[in-house]
Structure formats: C-alpha cells, structure tokens
Design a protein around this nucleic acid. Structure first.
Lengths: 251, 251
DNA sequence: CTCCCTCGTGTACTTTTTACACTAATTAAA
DNA sequence: TTTAATTAGTGTAAAAAGTACACGAGGGAG
C-alpha cells in the first residue's frame, strides 16, 4: 500500500474529437489555445480527468461544457502516451470521439464560443501537441464504424433525405457511392421510416424525408451486425486474380 | 506550468493479454498474485509505466520479462480507468494484447515460472481487478483481427498444416468452419508457401506443411485488406427477408 | 493385408455486389 | 404559361463471393 503510493504518477487527460456534419462536409470542433504551450494553435478539446471521474464521464463533461449537449454517441478510441508528447511533463491522454447533430448544437457562452470553431476535416492544418495523430486515429475509427454500423443518423438532423445520408457517407469515407446501390442497401436494412413528407424550400424536385427507427436499431444490435457500405471496385483485386489462377491450376 | 504540476495525477499501468495457441486451444498467460490486493487470484501480467517509457515499450517490457520474447505482434486495445477499479487508489491501465508462438516461449527464470501459467481461454475463472473485462475486450479485438487480417500465423509455429490453421481459427472464433471453403479462401490469398514437406510422426496420412509468406503480406497490407472468414449461415437473415419484401413491393 | 484415421479435393447453388440511364417532380426564368 | 434547370427516384442483368456437401487417397498400426 505504501509502496503503491510511491510509484511514478502521471497527469491524465481526455481529448474529445467532436464530429459534426454540415453543408455536405464532415467537421471537427477545435479550440484555439489561449495558453502555453502551443498558444494560438488549434487543438482538440480536452482536459484533466478528475479523481472521482470515470473516463467516459470526463469525455462527456468536456463535450457538455463546450456544446451543452449530453447523451450523444461517444466512443473511446486510443490512448496516447508518448514520453514527450507534452512539453511540461508526462501526460497520458485517452482519445474519444463523439458524433453530434450540428443543428442541435447550442451556442455556448460567448467566452467559449470565441475560442471554439468548426473546421472541415479535409482542411485541418497543424494542430497542437500530437493532435493531428489523434484526429487521424479517430477518423479511421469513424470510417470503420460507418461501414459497419448505421451511425450516420447521429450526425444528421432528425429528418433527412437519402441524398443527405449518402453525402454524409461519401464525406466520411472519402469516396463516391452509387446512388441506386446505396439506397437499395440502406433501405434493405429497414432502419429508416419513410415520413411521407417532402423537403421544402428547395429549387428542384423535393426529396422524401426519413427518420431513423430506434426500435429496429436495438433489434439490429441484438441480432449481430450485417451491414456494410462498400465503394466501387475499379480494377480486379489481387485476390480475384489469384483465385482465377488457382482454379486454372486445379480444373 | 506551476498550475500544471498541481493537477491530480494518477498511477498508470499497462496490462498485457498474452495469447498463445497450443493443443488446439487458445491460451492466455496469467500470473498468480503474490501480494495484496487479490492475493492468490489469477491476474493479467501488468505493471506501472516508467516515466521514460512509451506505452508500447512498457507492454513489450512486461512481455519480455515474462517470456524472454521480443518483437511479436502487439496491439493496444482499450484503456480502463473506472474510479474504483483498484482498491488502493486511482489506477488507469492500458490494455494490450500480444500474439506469441508458444513453441518459441522460453522458460522464464524459476521465480517467474512458479507464478505464470497458460490457461485455456474457454476455462478462465474469476480474475483479479476488472481483468475479466479486459480479457473479454482483447478477445473481441482478436476475433475481429483474425477475420480481417491474416494474423493466425503469429500464433503458429513457422511450419504448420492447413488443419492446424483451421483449428486456430475455429478456436478463436468459437465456431466451426467448412474444411473445403476454408482452404479455398486461405489459399486464394496467396499468403502461404507450400513447403512440399509433410508432417512426421503422426499415425495417419501426414498433412502438407506450409509457411507464411512475409513478402506477400507486406504487399497485402499496402493494397488494402480483402480478407474475411465467415461462419456458416444457418437461417435466413433478417436482411435477406426484408430485401425480398422490398423486391416484392417494387416489382 | 486390413483397419483406421486424417488428408485433400470440385461442383452446383444461393446470395451479394456491381454497373449502368432514364423519367418524374418541382422551381425559376423567360 | 411554357421552357429550362435541377435533383429525385427507380430496376435489371451480369459478375463475384459465399455456401453446402461426400468420397477416394495416403499413411501408420496391428
């Protein structure tokens, strides 16, 4: 016990990569640092974990302080603890990401709003600390997630069109998807409810609005996951070729 | 800076789930605790992270102290930091898992060997701390990994038969695989080299030996991953049914 | 020589994925 | 009110991948 207390202890933080979707673009909420080190640089929102706080509690706290939003999708991704990642001492940080609906994002107190800003993921420059690396890890996880689980809904307003959903996927996966195949796939999951309403205020044929079916989603989670969105293949994969070879060899 | 030093600091450890495969069974290396708390209970090997040590360095150190093995597959999985997970104070632990070839596993110094022991993953009892939870998380990740990347080789001796490889997959995935389909799939990846040798000392027709092709594997990693082993379907999935419904509705 | 055991192999069927193009609905402008 | 502009919405056929399934071959043990 006494021995225990003598061990080296390190500062312990949580960084939260807050994703949103707006204007056809995937965004991250960044904060302009007002203090040393890296003053003036953009950084991921993060803070020390309190002694009586679990990790995800800390991540939620950081999110709420910034956006006044609670209860959103939040996932632990990876822990970063390189010896020299913080110039003032040893700091270990657990990276989380969360998915929020930007439309629901309440303006924070002015003091915070001055510092916090949405940035298109595709146009991020040099961030403070190792935050580019953290962001990259979270982006990767998000890509995997979106191919695997129908979480797109977390980033869209409650009512959305299939085209919006497709743009969201395309933006996250950085690829183009075939409209018909995408719709076939998404609708075949039966996780969308057709609201039988249409878009308003657009200068072209209005699209149908859908909402996400939370009940069916629970069922889906319980039964195992059979969902994947794939991009087009442009060339024969190595796998295909080698399989053909194999078949020729053993006719 | 001064402020920085006043923040709450926590003890910081790494736990390493060391997987091996032997006798048709997936194993984990556990240690019998000789001190408080949880004296006498089995626990995952783990230790404090030193001030000048990166996380994966610490995980490798723990592995090496126990097994004298270096340079094996090692992956960070998740960080566990619940407020009360350690009765003596706040301890945050980063869980890693590693894959080793049990055949290469040198006997440690007797002092360690007395405490360390391989346990079949399927027969693990109550572990110390939250280690059952940590093990479960690592097992899940391993399942995903094995369906997605050809890492099975990390757990087998340098020369192995396809049946051994299949048993490894079956043991990790906790499912049965069809022999012909499994071989077709594995061979079509072109990651195995047929050694044109046979097993010896078995009381039946000896199987061919293969080894893993590291060069092709690098290529495979560079080109993106197209590998998955699936278990048999026993019933129509919900997806199939709903798709049929949809097709009937729009003929 | 026979028994016993595991090895190794092919095919037909089902499901999933992919590629691809035109008509419909609405607003804005002429 | 006609026309242009713009996005919405829809089906099908071909290719690839996945699945189910059974028997002769090769070796050791007795």
């Amino acid at each position: 016990m006494e021995e225990f207390n003598n061990y080296f202890k390190s500062a312990f933080t949580v960084d939260n990569v807050i994703f949103g979707f707006d204007n056809g673009d995937l965004k991250v909420l960044l904060i302009k640092r007002g203090e040393e080190p890296y003053t003036g640089k953009w950084a991921l929102p993060g803070y020390f974990v309190y002694p009586n706080e679990d990790l995800d509690t800390a991540a939620n706290r950081i999110l709420e302080e910034l956006t006044s939003i609670k209860n959103v999708y939040l996932e632990q991704v990876k822990t970063f603890g390189a010896v020299n990642r913080h110039p003032f001492g040893r700091v270990i940080t657990v990276a989380f990401f969360s998915l929020i609906k930007i439309s629901h994002y309440n303006l924070q107190p002015a003091s915070i709003a001055k510092k916090a800003q949405w940035h298109s993921v595709s146009k991020i420059g040099d961030l403070a600390f190792d935050h580019n690396e953290i962001l990259a890890a979270c982006l990767n996880r998000l890509k995997w997630l979106v191919r695997t689980r129908p979480v797109g809904f977390e980033l869209l307003p409650p009512k959305f069109t299939l085209t919006e959903l497709q743009h969201l996927y395309e933006s996250i996966l950085e690829t183009e998807l075939d409209k018909r195949n995408f719709r076939k796939k998404i609708l075949s999951m039966n996780l969308l409810i057709d609201l039988e309403e249409s878009q308003e205020g657009v200068a072209h044929r209005p699209a149908r609005l859908y909402k996400f079916d939370k009940e069916k989603y629970k069922q889906f989670l319980a039964e195992g996951f059979n969902f994947e969105v794939k991009e087009s293949k442009k060339k024969e994969t190595q796998k295909t070729l080698s399989r053909k070879k194999q078949l020729q060899a053993n006719p």
